[in-house]
Amino acid sequence: MGGESRYMGLAYVMPYVVGLLIFTAFPFLYSFYLSFTDYSLMSAPTWVGLDNYEKLFTRDRTFDKSLKVTLIYVFSTVPLKLAFALFIAVILNYRLKMINFFRTAYYVPSILGGSIAIAVLWRYIFADTGLVNMFIGVFGLEPVNWFGDPTNALFTITLLRCWQFGSAMVIFLAALQSIDKSLYEAAWIDGANQWQTFRNITLPLITPVIFFNMIMQTVQAFQEFNGPYIITEGGPLKSTYLLPLYIYEKAFKNFDMGYASAIAWVLFTIIMVLTLIAFWSSKKWVYYAGDKRS
């Protein structure tokens, strides 16, 4: 490769590299430095060593509560959402009438899901006088306090996330359609029923996609902000106070950037460790085409 074309290649990737350095790499590393400082935005950061982390792990009850709520949220949302997305994808994989309409219709909540408008809509649907309580009232049931009761509030936020199953569903659907039909034919000839073919053919063959969706959904769930912020603002009793809300409050309401950065790095470490565990465990349950183990 001549010198000129080498520079040409560099010029092509430069916009991305510059963007990455300025908007991702620099803030990422700078926030690590800030996590060891006391920084209120209005004055220069002051080095405080491990003080922020020490306070976080030993004296901050809000952090303990927020971390607990976040873990419950992630570990309930991700499996529920993946199971539901796979269930719908399997149904939409059949040759049904108006199948393209249904595929689009089920995907729509994912396009709308992250928006503020949908969070507001969710608030109205589950409010004390909302649609859900009106519906259960038809069956003579007492209205449920969805947002005022700490136990129900997190469940309601979880449902909003699960409702946005479309993107995971589309990926599952693509994976299902790529499975060689002859495998099913062979299984049917051997007398396998629906569940057996799903359990022994479909599921193993889509494990790479399940793994991919699981990682993506876990990372996204840890970053959830809009839903709880708009619907309950973290309440009641901090029962929906996910860590991103705490980071936001510390950074932009209390202007404690150093402490907020420390929380962000703890969150990053948790996501990183869980991802590494997932990758490590994937050797035991994810099967790739052409892999000797499969």
């Binding site: 608030r123 109205y124 409010a127 004390d128 306090n145 005022g148 009761d149 009641p236």
Partner: peptide, 18 residues
Amino acid sequence: AWKDAAAAGNVKLHEDPK
């Protein structure tokens, strides 16, 4: 009670039908 008021979610007073 706080719990009953919170049942409407994080809604501002002037936006509430009640």
